[in-house]
Write a protein that binds this DNA or RNA. Structure first.
Lengths: 350, 350
DNA sequence: TGTTAGCACTCATCAATAACGAGTGCTAAC
DNA sequence: GTTAGCACTCGTTATTGATGAGTGCTAACA
């Protein structure tokens, strides 16, 4: 049996209708709504073929047809006509990026939010995870009589600070000397040598040995934290708006998995089986993803580059019948914005 | 009609049963389950009185009774027997506080999480909002060839940093001089004078005028950000576990209100009408709160002190029939931990 | 040979009906 | 004042039947 032009037209009609209505669709409806120039009886025959080919499914005898994952896959790979973004949408996405580009955490949060607002699906954004975080600079500065601030600058453009307690805070010059010692040591020794205190054993018995030790401990903690991956979600509750999740238990399953950070990271990970077919946008349809709880969902994701060798992911999760033609351009637009701005920044720098 | 001892016993039985089962409860059930030494017929008469007094409600003729908001109020004010926390719970709460006390943001997040895990209700934690944020110290430190880091230390123990772009980053000594100028200016002038640039007009034409201007702009932005209130929630999805929210639209209403930061702040605000009756724990039962969407919820909250004149709130939101006897000790325990540790810290300092 | 009208058949959905039972209020006896 | 007994109420659940959307098959048509 051949998947001819007419069958494809019918399949497209079924999928478009189902994306809009979430109701099984029958031959008569297609004949009336879509001007294909053939009768419902003919459509019926073609639909029977499409079912045999695995592109549509009949939930029960005497009901209309529903697209199968395989049907969506064909649709996404070959039939998609992207919707052009409105000027408003384009501006909104550009501003979201422009206003937050200097603060990666805000950027992630706002990106997640912008996408969920524009698409009405759930969105997940993961922080760019560097292969290896290196410390560029440490500065110890005064806080009050009994505490000092440690500012740690890392090579992934991240800056973190900790406050630590001391017996009596040394003055500014001493803190500067301590900063110099710390930076010098960080340049000359490996992180392992610092963790074992071997790298700065000589200083431990100096008048400020305790403080130096505390600073190193704090620095190591900061690097460890930095290696931890952060993930943000937005619009998860949108799930409840879709009839496929009107069964509260189904919705709960999705909520539960989107609540766990580790799960989110796995979901966005390329090992989840994403097929890249639309430039850098990767799509998993329904059962194609490896999470039982998300078998009625599709995941659309892409990666963005932040700093050297550091990639983050942006994903959109919705019901399998999500509006691919609308979501993909939105996702594409924001990730292009992010990449452009970051590129401009680093070009200006180099 | 008098609310005698026996009526109260029956009311207590009804409320305890309803908290456990969420089902209307009838006279026969009470007679069988609770050993009150009277027959179901007598209980029936008393229940009729309790209804007339407004403490219980009959959803429809021939159904059992359900506590009214007024009934819960009596229960909370007079009948509550607090559950003692297990050693495990106590330890868990203590560790949550101890491990995060140096980082207010983590502390809030982890407190919210710990409470939602322990109670299975939704929790809201708001950041201590200072009346007025003052800048204690600013330090400009090097980042790379074309950017510098500005570290801003505020008097509410908060430290924030920004990275700003410069033409060519000055060396460390120059940055130190700039830091000194900035700190000096901040001590001598008001924030308004700095915003209008009047305070540092003399420096604007110096070789590093542009950088100094950028630093002040960044500092002001940081203070503004700091005045913004932050709120964290956890376990909001627990709402779906309660039969009173098995109607998805009801659940959505709650989700929607708990999604908006401004709403959360209003909910926790004392102007919401909280009655303080259990030490520092304040409770709003059902309709007592001013949010239509939360009319089937109770809110239990308390405040904690962080730094000078700076208070944050911790709240637990659940169905009206929430387990008050369990939740209140948990909330009490964690807020005491927080206050104790903070007090110890500031005592040690002073 | 492909297309279509016609028709019998399927089956989810919805409304009406009936049976059930938890719970009540009232009455009369203790 | 308490309680056994009983008629009554009414939400819940199961049953039945009608409805209609949709199908597959057949036979006639172009």
């Amino acid at each position: 049996m051949i998947l001819n032009e007419r069958k494809i037209k019918i399949l497209e009609a079924i999928i478009n209708d189902y994306i809009a209505t979430a109701e099984p669709i029958g031959s008569r409806t297609i004949a009336k709504k879509y001007d294909l120039g053939i009768s419902s009886a003919t459509i019926r025959n073609e639909m029977s073929d499409l079912e045999e080919l695995g592109f549509i499914i009949q939930p029960h005898t005497s009901s209309g047809r529903v697209p199968s994952d395989r049907g969506y896959r064909l649709y996404v790979d070959r039939l998609l006509h992207f919707r052009k973004l409105t000027q408003q949408e384009t501006d909104f996405l550009r501003n979201t990026v422009a206003e937050n580009i200097n603060h990666i955490e805000y950027l992630m949060r706002q990106t997640a939010k912008a996408l969920s607002v524009l698409t009405n699906y759930a969105t997940v954004v993961s922080e760019p995870k560097p292969q290896e975080v290196k410390i560029k600079h440490v500065q110890v500065i005064p806080f009050d009589e009994t505490s000092v601030i440690i500012v740690v600058v890392m090579d992934n453009k991240s800056v973190k600070n900790n406050v630590i307690k001391v017996e009596r805070a040394p003055d500014f010059d001493i803190l500067n000397q301590i900063s110099n010692i710390v930076n010098q040591t960080l340049r000359e020794f490996s992180l392992e040598q610092i963790i074992s205190k071997e790298a700065y054993a000589d200083f431990l018995n100096s008048p400020y040995g305790k403080l130096i030790d505390d600073v190193f401990i704090s620095v190591i903690k900061t690097v460890r934290d930095e290696r931890e991956m952060r993930v943000y979600t937005s619009g998860v509750n949108n799930i409840l708006d879709f009839p496929e999740f009107s069964d509260i238990d189904k919705a709960k399953n999705v909520f539960k998995i989107l609540e766990e950070k580790d799960m989110l990271i796995d979901i966005l990970d390329d090992s989840n089986g994403f097929r890249g077919n639309l430039g850098d946008i990767k799509i998993l349809i329904g059962n194609e993803n490896s999470f039982e709880q998300l078998k009625d969902c599709s995941i659309i994701k892409t990666d963005y580059k932040y700093g050297d060798n550091s990639y983050g992911s942006i994903g959109i999760i919705g019901p399998t019948r999500m509006n691919y033609a609308q979501v993909i351009p939105v996702l594409n637009s924001i990730v292009n914005n992010i990449n452009d701005v970051i590129k401009a920044l680093s070009d200006g720098k180099g």
